[in-house]
Every structure is written in structure tokens, then in C-alpha cells.
Nucleic acid binder design. Structure first.
Length: 256
DNA sequence: GTTGAGCGTT
């Protein structure tokens, strides 16, 4: 049964969701299923994974059929070392649709206006933490290595927006490895304003044009470029010779 | 190849 989380939520109306935190990024639902199934009837095990990378986010959801079994699993598996990591099992507080859950049991949809909805937006929670940490310098700075992943998420929005213009393939996992570099490379290219795929001057420190001491002017070619652009009403053919030729049919030499 | 706050999918 490794189809956990691949076919959507099977049934959550009569199930108790348990949140498993601190699980390793390599732990899969199949690894947690036998572990939790030993303490009760596990209806489904779902591990939220990243949309791009597809890796585990570090926590999982285990749905039990009965609350007593779920409670038992929490007490038994909470603090259990799984894959070398001490996992934390507890009842889920929120549902997939932001429903309020009491001990895994969905009570009612949380009121988004006035109610205590998810204070921590999963989309900008990392940003909030970042600022919070940087601002108040909370003693929560347990580690600062997760920025690497947060950076991905932060750009994810731009990435998708940008992809709209460029019919990007839905294969995120394909260009996942070099996506970072490719992104940076493109960003730099855009900053330059030139779409030349060729590399620039080998010596960026030395100005290629000693005459131009003000690169700003180079960035604003309004004065000259526009002047050359406007005047040329006469249609000039790139082929020139062909267009100038009277022969309407270039290949019809025999006919002519 | 990595990381470690925190609450979820077809």
C-alpha cells in the first residue's frame, strides 16, 4: 500500500488526524504506516511534499480510525526515534481546508474573518520568521541552514509568474537541479538588458570602452536610438538584391 | 549531497 497521499484524501470525516513532526526528510508514508498501524487502525498516511522538489517537508499526517488508538499512538510514538530522528506525534490542529480540529476530529470550518485562522501563512511563514528573527533576534535561531530551501519557495512565486510568458514545461523535477543556476543566470541577463547568450567581456573590471565613463548613459539610449529608429519610412528589404530585382519569381528562370 | 520551522494532498 504505497499509494498514500497519491490519490487524495480518502476519508477524513470519521478519522483522527495526527501530526508527526520532526520526521526525517527521507521518511516516507510507507515507513510510518507500519509504525503507526501497530497501535491502531491507520486509515491513511500522508506526508506533505514540496511541489517542486517532491521531498518531504519534515512532517507527516497519520489518520486513525479511532481516537483512542490515535491517542495511544501519540503516547507511544511521540518521542520515538525514527530513522535516527526523534519524531513528535501530536493531534493535528488544522485540517486540509483550514478546518478546526480537536484531537484530530474536525469540528467545524474556521472562520477566516475574526476567527483564529491560520495565523502562520504557509506561504510567507518563512519570511515572517526571517524578519522576526532578524528583528527581535529571537533565541529561536536554532539553525540558519534552512534558508536555502526557503529561498526556493520565495522564488517559486516569481518562477511561476515568469513561466507564464514562457510556456514552461510542467516538468519541474526535471529542471530542478539546475533551476537555481539557470534562474540566477537569467536574472543577471535581464539586469543587463541584453539578451546575448554569449558571455560578456572577460574582464568586467576593466571598462571595455574607455570613452564611456558613465555607464548610466548607456542604459538610456533614448536620445540616439530613438532617433535612428524613427526615420526610415522606406521599406528596405534585407535581401535587397532580390527585392530590387524585377523578377517576381526568383525560381522561374525558365519562364522568364 | 544538504536543511529542521512547523499543520495536509487527487
Amino acid at each position: 500500500m504505497s499509494h498514500f497521499g497519491r490519490t487524495g484524501p480518502p476519508d477524513i470525516k470519521d478519522t483522527f488526524s495526527l501530526l508527526v513532526l520532526n520526521v526525517t526528510f527521507r521518511t516516507t508514508a510507507d515507513d510510518l504506516f507500519p509504525l503507526f498501524d501497530k497501535y491502531g487502525k491507520v486509515v491513511d498516511v500522508f506526508i506533505p511534499r514540496d511541489r517542486r522538489t517532491g521531498d518531504s517537508r519534515g512532517f507527516a499526517f497519520v489518520r486513525y480510525k479511532y481516537q483512542d488508538e490515535a491517542q495511544k499512538a501519540v503516547e507511544k510514538l511521540d518521542g520515538r526515534v525514527v530513522d535516527g530522528r526523534e519524531i513528535m506525534v501530536r493531534f493535528a490542529k488544522y485540517g486540509p481546508n483550514a478546518e478546526r480540529i480537536d484531537k484530530g476530529r474536525i469540528l467545524e470550518p474556521v472562520n477566516r474573518t475574526g476567527g483564529r485562522s491560520r495565523s502562520r501563512s504557509p506561504r510567507s511563514r518563512h519570511r515572517d520568521h526571517y524578519r522576526d528573527k532578524d528583528s527581535k533576534r529571537r533565541s529561536r535561531s536554532r539553525s540558519g541552514g534552512r534558508y536555502d530551501r526557503d529561498r526556493y519557495r520565495g522564488r517559486d512565486k516569481d518562477y511561476r509568474q515568469r513561466s507564464r510568458s514562457r510556456s514552461r514545461s510542467p516538468d519541474y523535477h526535471k529542471a530542478r537541479g539546475r533551476g537555481k543556476y539557470d534562474e540566477e543566470r537569467r536574472s543577471r541577463s535581464r539586469s543587463h538588458g541584453s539578451a546575448s547568450p554569449v558571455r560578456r567581456s572577460p574582464s568586467p573590471r576593466r571598462s571595455p570602452s574607455p570613452r564611456r565613463t558613465t555607464p548610466s548613459r548607456d542604459a538610456s539610449p533614448d536620445g540616439r536610438n530613438r532617433k535612428e529608429r524613427s526615420p526610415t519610412p522606406k521599406s528596405v528589404s534585407p535581401r535587397g538584391r532580390r527585392a530590387g530585382s524585377r523578377s517576381p519569381l526568383p525560381c522561374s528562370d525558365a519562364d522568364d
